[in-house]
Design a protein around this nucleic acid. Sequence first.
RNA 1: AGCGGGAUGGGAUAGCCAGGAGAUUCCGCCGGGCUCAUAACCCGGAGAUCGGACGUUCAAAUCGUCCUCCCGCUACCA
Length: 715
Amino acid sequence: MHEEFPTESPAVVTCGLPYANGDLHVGHLRTYVSGDAYSRALERLGQSVAFVCGSDMHGTPIAVNAAEAGVDPETFASEYHEQYEETFPEFNVEFDNYGHTHDATNTEMTRSFVREWIDGDHVVEKEIEVAWDAEAGQPLPDRFVEGTCPYCGERARGDECDEGCQRHLEPGEIEDPVSTITGNPAEYRTRRHKFLRLADFQEYLAGFIDRLEGTENAKNQPREWIEGELKDLCITRDMDWGVDYPAEDDGEEELVLYVWVDAPIEYVSSTKQYSERVGAEEYDWEAVWRDRAEPTASAPEGGEIVHLIGHDIIQHHAVFWPAMLRGAGFNEPRAILACGFVNLAGEAFSTSRDRAVWADDYVESGLHPDLYRYHIVTGSEFTADVNFSWDRLGERVNSELVGTLGNFLYRSLLFAERNYGGTPEAAVSDEVEGEIEAAMADFRTAVNDYRVRGLGRAPVELASFGNEYIQRHEPWKLTDDDPKRAARVIRDCVQLSKAIAVLMEPVLPEKAETLWSQLGEDGSVHEATLEAALSAPPEAFGEPSELFDRLEDDEIEALNRQLEARIEAAEGDAEAPAEGSDGSENGGKDGRGAADEDADDGSALEPIADERVSFETFEELDVRIGEIRSAEPIEGADDLAKLEVDVGVERRQIVAGIKRLHDLDSLPGTRIVVVANLEKTELFGVESDGMLLAAGEEADLLTTHGGAEPGTRVR
RNA sequence: AGCGGGAUGGGAUAGCCAGGAGAUUCCGCCGGGCUCAUAACCCGGAGAUCGGACGUUCAAAUCGUCCUCCCGCUACCA
């Protein structure tokens, strides 16, 4: 549907904005390295391309964490912004422009988007009830309120019943709301908010999703939203940290735009900044982003917009974002590439528990950035989740980069330099030329199919062919007997080396540049196009050196030990989940704080509550001995089991979260302790009439010591 | 619950959209070769009923239906 790369019109490649609220880890870097590699690959094809990004500076978590740290949000976010700017180049991720959402370009751009929506009559105002913390004197947006789900009775966050029925909750719906900031009950106040009427774009989005290219997950997942009913998107928040809503009258001065409004617009702003720096003749941001053709009903005209993101934010990019662009008369994304997450031993990183491999860890390891790049880009399919392991990285570096790639290049160039002082005079064989052409074709296909992984494999496969080729022709035996043939073989190997340099540039940019100069080339491989793979290298070049060093076992072991110790500390320990581990500097990273469910996992004992309850209050609980009669898992639920419990006077059906923690078959006959007069509720569609008591994360069931019969009251 | 992704020799992973001999690459294992090269490189071998069942087809890892298990998303996590 879209024209193949390279196209006449300019392209822009973006990466999801890092949220300026914590340190970067190797999971984040997967996206940025992939984006960098993809953008470089487009350049090798001769595509005009800008690679842009910026820090996401707004939103409630930053505001709250800044307040906790006693600084203003701008200072707080700017520190992380500056840190990111330093970190990316350490991984050879080189943005053409790296801005942030709080700069003037983005603030103005965002407001102009919103004005377009208002002019196009896509914005509606509604009065909604928002949760309010009287003590803190502030509204409680989104996750800063917790309470009880009105539908299923489970504990829920303000915006979503995350533990129970999974329903999205509108502001005001949640029962017994409590502020996660102060722990006080939240009250409700009526506020006027602005909404983007997404339904206006329903039909447009249906067409868009059919045109969208990229990874399968990005093309398929949004269909659920687009084909369903699109709710109005609340685009304002009661805060003072953010981009001010462009007020046309009084009374809205306190509203800022929702962080997901100004964040993606930074893609446009950052491109504009790049354009302004290099000049519009060199790169014109409007030619990319503006829909300048007659706005036909279907596809707009413009440049090629390619977004690389983590697969957690597909919806924002494939539903809200194109609607936002469309509503403001902008071009739409051509492709979205959504990558999988990096895990540790099958489990997600937990930044709050320091269960992660941080960008700094890698930098401090002294390993070359290109090694990480190669490993993360080629180690698995882009969309798949992947386990990070130093062992695996070491194995692949030693066998593929040192053994196959580095070794071929070194033996070829060393042989060429010693015997011919550079490139021997001979023609490249048809076989080798064909092999290089095939590799080039694979590379082009990988770019056009958005297979980032394919980019890194092409050079190693060519080197593998080279090793086999040089072995088959044994030039070291030919130098005396048949010098002409030897020269031809080495000429072939030198050409393969040059082709490898070009092909490896996207994934291994710094190493490719070193190889380029070893070949005696002037200029930079970063300027070369794919065709250079077939042009002759300079006649003379100097003695090469090994491009990659072997990673020694003890080096890897040391990194492994560090990581294992950290995982252990994160899992088992009682000490120091949040504030603890490495002091004040870490305070920011724990920012998601109370809302972060994995922060309070099997950790320190919580203090006994200060507030005492009266004996009468206690008496209100009817706690009884029960005996489990049957226990069966609830299909589809991860943790829930349906129990039938004999409480003496009657039998009760009780749902409990013990599916994974106990062997259900062995439970019948077990005496347990039950709160018998708890309100009935429905969990996962199954009625639960009572609650069994269990201790701790492992749900250690409370039972009896003597022979108390079912139905006996517990006091 | 809905949606998305996944299950492939001992481990890790390709292949699936466009069906064509049981399949890629890396690690590990066994045997051989070579010595220009970083104990590297090259060749050969053992090892898998491609998660399960049914179906479509001359032909299924690949297409369809159902099932099991894992991971993720569901509007503030890359």
